[in-house]
Each structure stands twice: as C-alpha cells, then as structure tokens.
C-alpha cells in the first residue's frame, strides 16, 4: 500500500504532502492510544467488579444460546462470550468508545485458547466482521453533524440507516461463516 501510494504521489506531485500526512498519522495513532488508556482502564475496572461479584456469569448465561450459535468453539469460554455480548450491546447503543475495550478483551479471551497465536480463529474472524459492520440503533454522531449544519429534519436518516446497517450486519456474519469453509490461510 505504501509503495502504490508513493508511485501515485510521484505522478500527482504530492510527495511532500503524502509524507507530511504519514507523519501526522503516526502522531495521531499514538494520541489515540493515549486517550484510550483512561477509558480502557476505567471500563476494565468496572467490568472486573462485575466479574468478581459473579454478575458477569449470570449475564453471559442469559445470552449464551443465541451467541453460541455463531461461536460454536467458545461454548466453554464464558469470559469471551460475556465480553462479546457486552461489546455487541455497547455498539448497538452507539457507544463505540465503550465497546472497544470489551471487544479487545473478548479477542484476548479467544486468543487464550488459540493454538497458533499469530493466526486468527474462525470465531475471531466472525467477531471482527460483526464489529466492522458497525451495527447501531441510532447514528447519534451523524445526526448531530446534520443538525449542526442546519438540516430541517435530521431524524429522517434514522430508519434508512437502521435498515442498511442491519443488512450489513447480517451479511458480515453470513460472509464470515461462508468464507471459513474455504479455510483461507
């Protein structure tokens, strides 16, 4: 990708800009990770309380059945299951920042029972595809932007967005389940 970009940059004469943007991006990446520390620490702290009090176990039992269907190899891994459940519900309410720590924790739980630590398991792929589809009930940020720009009725995009995101969510699950049969290395 870097190579293609540089070839393009030579043709368009954007080499200086491209390099500047790359340096800026690396700075932004670190800034993001730093800003994530607080949220991450806070959430995992709260979640740890839920875990130690036994609440997590109860919650995960509740949603184990529908999710167990999607992640057959995680039946014995209740930590991963409950983190997946928390991630999906946080995303649905448009709480992307809260969903990320749960998602990363779920990935770590899945990694524990992964035999080849550098290769993703089927469940990891399904879970990632579900997250990249970005299912949410209300696209709060987009509505805020439209309202701020003076759209008369920004709520009009909620229903079409919900339909589209549901279609994308279902197809993400479908494609990951379909592709895992081919066992791509």
């Amino acid at each position: 990708m870097i190579l293609i970009s540089f070839v393009c940059a030579i043709f368009t004469g954007n080499i200086a800009n491209t390099f500047d943007a790359m340096l800026l991006a690396s700075k932004k990446a670190v800034e993001f990770a730093i800003s994530l520390i607080g949220i991450m620490a806070f959430w995992l702290g709260i979640v740890k309380i839920a875990q130690n009090s036994g609440l997590m176990e109860k919650f995960s039992k509740l949603i184990k059945k529908p999710l167990g269907f999607l992640f057959p190899d995680l039946k014995q891994n209740s930590d991963a299951m409950s983190n997946i459940a928390l991630n999906v519900s946080a995303n649905a309410f448009g709480l992307g920042n809260a969903a990320t720590p749960f998602g990363i924790k779920a990935m770590e739980d899945m990694q524990e029972q992964n035999k080849d630590k550098e290769t993703a398991t089927n469940s990891m792929c399904t879970f990632l595809a579900m997250n990249t589809a970005g299912f949410q009930i209300v696209p709060a940020l987009v509505i805020a932007i439209l309202a701020a720009s003076g759209m008369e009725n920004p709520g009009q995009i909620i229903l079409p967005t919900l339909i589209v995101t549901s279609i994308a969510f279902v197809s993400a699950i479908f494609f990951s389940k379909l592709l895992e049969r081919f066992n791509i290395k």
Partner: peptide, 10 residues
C-alpha cells in the same frame, strides 16, 4: 500511516 499515504498521494 499506510492509510494516510494512500489517501494523500491521490
């Protein structure tokens, strides 16, 4: 960095 290069290079 990869993504930024792809975007800015045109």
């Amino acid at each position: 960095v990869c993504v930024a290069a792809f975007r800015e290079s045109g």
